[in-house]
Design a protein around this nucleic acid. Structure first.
Lengths: 141, 141
DNA sequence: CCGCAGGATTCACCATAGTTGATGAGCCCT
DNA sequence: AGGGCTCATCAACTATGGTGAATCCTGCGG
């Protein structure tokens, strides 16, 4: 199930870390974003090849760029245990990449259970009102 | 002092991890040892180039092989500050382990900016009501 | 139905990661 | 004082990592 090939990991990342809206990043988008971050050039085609497993064995610089973009340490692509640890946090991590969400999470800490529940309900309600799909499952635990 | 180029790191490893006797491994010895361990082929010349900095940017497999031989995690060869920064982020996440907070963060994703702001305000208000101190600073940025 | 806009594939090609082979400087024998 | 070893360095060459342009899909507006 949990293939620990590079392709599988990348595929997983694509699935989990998404742009604000909802659908996965396109290869093109990722390529552009990486260039924009000051990373090395990387072609959309190549990203596709890596994800599909047609190419494994990218260079150090490209690994750095990928790790940087997806917000994981480079070790994610190497170490198995590290990868697992991070996987547990990943959905939450990508959610927290958006500043406002982050803001809310940080400040919600320490509130009484009752208040938290109220807020949680409110979020769900708004979600419903805005016609959003079911949220991704909490992978942890 | 601590150059954090790949070359410097490799050089350091050569200096520090030595065979039983005393003197450094030769490039040839390392190349052979890596092949013997079932790793990919790697030429002595190439090792030299890497150590001298004439080549940086090796492939994933070669990085794995080097890390394996010298007994360090592959992450060793990547930028430390970046890794630390991301690790800090991940640690922050485990601070947010409390299920309800987590729940809120996950489901707040994708909401309109306006809604997010409203919720954020609400959280602050409740926080105030419950007499909680100023929230912890956002370590990002 | 038609076109067309954006994305996934495909594939031939180019740049460079990585190799092979040669050169020469030390070092140890005898 | 010179042959034979080992090793670092250099200079072509090769293999493969990585790219760009063309092609195939798919959904969508007219």
């Amino acid at each position: 199930m949990a293939e620990h090939t590079l392709a599988a990991k990348l595929d997983h990342l694509f699935g989990v870390v998404r742009p604000a809206g909802g659908d996965e990043y396109s290869f093109e988008q990722v390529a552009d974003a990486i260039r924009a971050r000051g990373g090395p050039t990387i072609s959309a085609t190549y990203l596709w090849q890596l994800r599909k497993g047609l190419r494994d064995n990218p260079t150090k610089r490209h690994l750095e760029a990928l790790a940087g973009f997806f917000g994981v340490p480079a070790a994610y692509f190497f170490d198995e245990s590290e990868a697992e640890r991070i996987d547990a946090e990943l959905t939450l991590l990508s959610a927290l990449r958006e500043a406002p969400v982050r803001q809310i999470a940080l400040r919600a800490r320490g509130l009484s259970p009752k208040s938290l529940e109220t807020i949680s309900d409110m979020v769900d309600r708004v979600r419903e009102l805005e016609g959003l799909p079911e949220p991704p499952a909490d992978t942890d635990r």
